[in-house]
Design a protein around this nucleic acid. Structure first.
Lengths: 342, 342
DNA sequence: ATTAGCACTCGTTGAAGGTGAGTGCTAACA
DNA sequence: TGTTAGCACTCACCTTCAACGAGTGCTAAT
């Protein structure tokens, strides 16, 4: 489809543009050592590349900038997998030591470090809790009127929520119900808790007084109606540093989206394993039309999948971002496997 | 110090400037119904006010804008305590119902609602945990190599941290240590835990095998070396909406600060009860020299004090911000008292 | 097929001039 | 003596214009 020379020129333009954010002219390309043609030749090739849709201009006599199709081709066919510096690799490895053995910490830390390393915004979506199993249920009375319910999963996820305790309910009642629930429910996948309760536990509870029913209702409300999309975002303000967002209006609208979990979480949910790169208008959301989102999935056990993503301008350091994300998600999957699957 | 007429003019200028963010000219002031003087008179008064330092100009023939001293005078002597709309009052009241009975939720929700209501950035600093007391300690084993320690305080604060369990330590050992700790330490203020352990518990533990010592060390590490400044920030991007931050560089540097808990938390820590308003250069931090920070304290019990703050441009809607923050912190203190002090 | 040469395009910069909202000052007025 | 009308002046802002230069496309020579 593209001649070797065209590919070279396209690659040079994209590499340079990623670095400088400025349109690239033929003379500048010709100056490079790895390019042996005159500006005029390059101009001809660039005109062809523009006809094919790989490049575009900011105005009729400006240098060229990559189009989204250009980036797409670059990403699919030309990207040399950047060798990460040994410093970076070591830093990544050092993150997955003994301290990272709790999902919250892993995700928080991942978001933080990756945004530091890339200077892009990092989004980490926790694994769907559906496959995780109940490890323990616990009620801690705080005072006459309130108590805290704590649910621990086998992934080390701790969920807690306080609730009001009506005066007619005694703490000892709650305790008994919790005991029953623990007995029957430990080891049950969170997603089946509801069903399991229906079929096995309800009967048992009904044998006791009506207060038990009320206690159960309380706990049920406190813990099982939880929606737990755990989203961690770090380095939001990095996006401000990109010259693409010198226009404050663009920054504003993107920030509005990033502030809202509801809008971000769905974009990250994916079934496709491995890396996925969405360039510009490939992103459904309009405010992200001048952004690239690279998502990678990590696994926890067999079916649980979480997502980790980098959000930057379309003019992204693809090679570095991809390499880092790949390295990270692999380490993360391995590390999680070590910790939660034996 | 100021004549009545000067005060009126100053107030009008500040009110108008807060609304429009534009320098105010004498003609515009004269047009207002509550001002009965000619532009020339007003100009004379404005010149005097400028000499006194209450006003300044953006250039030699521009209208006046309030100086920091002007805002200070306004805040100290002239601010009419805005009657909040009944909608707003109702909204605030409705926030402190049965669902708000857990510190994390209270703070998170406070930050969120206040930033929505004011369109400024809201910062909430949790109460120092020093006075809170241990309610319960709990260890939940996750697998052979890891366990989660959970600490619940009498304020409903849940702290959890996972830790690696060396192979030579048995879970039953951990359990026994936890039992001992619970027996001795429930009800002890968090800040005294260390001392209490030294004096009372250590002996007890030393009577048992050395494994107990190791178990204890583990738990100690996992739970008691926690630094728990709980800071919640909401509406960071609101600051972008203010025309003061159309200059993207200013926005960038302020964002950098807001992203870092370490820099924000100290500013909020205060002993002074009640409201405090820091205008412009009254803020120590340089990036906040064109901002106003209004902090209010709330109490939980006798000595525990937390802070809730609004951060906006110096051209802030002081009356509204102050009224809201006051209303909120009072409700919050009352609500917390109801929940955690009986 | 490649490239040198050249006319052309268009964004950027800076200077010049006009406009208008604002001021300070002076002199007239109540 | 305090207030106000009048007027000259200032300065940010906008528009226009010309010069500049980095870049292009096209043509003709190599």
């Amino acid at each position: 489809m593209l001649t070797e020379r065209q590919a070279l020129i396209l690659k040079v333009i994209i590499d340079e543009f990623i670095e400088t954010a400025q349109p690239i002219g033929s003379r500048n390309i010709a100056k490079r050592e790895d390019v042996a043609f005159s500006p005029a030749t390059i101009r001809n090739e660039m005109a062809d590349l523009e006809d094919e849709g790989f490049l575009s201009k900011t105005h009729s006599s400006s240098g060229r900038i990559p189009s989204e199709k250009g980036y797409r081709f670059y990403v699919d066919h030309m990207m040399s997998p950047l060798q990460l510096s040994s410093d970076e690799v070591r830093l990544v490895q050092s993150q997955f030591d003994d301290r990272m053995i709790e999902m919250e910490k892993v995700m928080q830390n991942s978001a933080h470090i990756l945004s530091e390393l890339t200077q892009y915004t990092t989004l980490v979506l926790g694994p769907e809790v559906y496959e995780t199993k109940l490890k323990q249920l616990q009620i801690v009375p705080i005072n006459k009127q309130s108590a805290i319910a704590i649910l621990v999963t086998d992934t080390g996820h701790v969920e807690h929520r306080s609730f009001a305790v009506p005066s007619e309910i005694d703490h000892s009642d709650l305790e008994k119900v919790v005991n029953i629930l623990n007995e029957k429910l430990v080891g049950v996948p969170i997603v089946y808790l509801d069903r399991m309760i229906e079929s096995e536990v309800i009967d048992l509870i009904n044998r006791y007084t009506s207060n038990f029913q009320k206690s159960y209702d309380l706990i049920q409300k406190a813990l099982f109606n939880h929606q737990t999309t755990s989203l961690y975002v770090s380095g939001k303000s990095n996006i401000l540093m990109q010259p693409e967002f010198n226009d404050i209006e663009k920054a504003r609208s993107l920030f509005n989206v990033m502030e809202s979990e509801d809008q971000i979480a769905p974009i990250l949910k994916t079934n496709q394993e491995g890396l996925k790169i969405s360039i510009g208008h490939e992103n459904e959301m309009e405010v992200m039309n001048n952004c690239t989102l690279i998502t990678a999935t990590y696994t926890l056990g067999e079916n649980q999948i979480g997502t980790i993503a980098l959000l930057g301008p379309t003019r992204m350091e693809y090679a570095k971002a991809v390499s880092l994300l790949d390295l990270w998600s692999n380490h993360m999957s391995q590390s999680l496997y070590r910790w939660f699957n034996d």
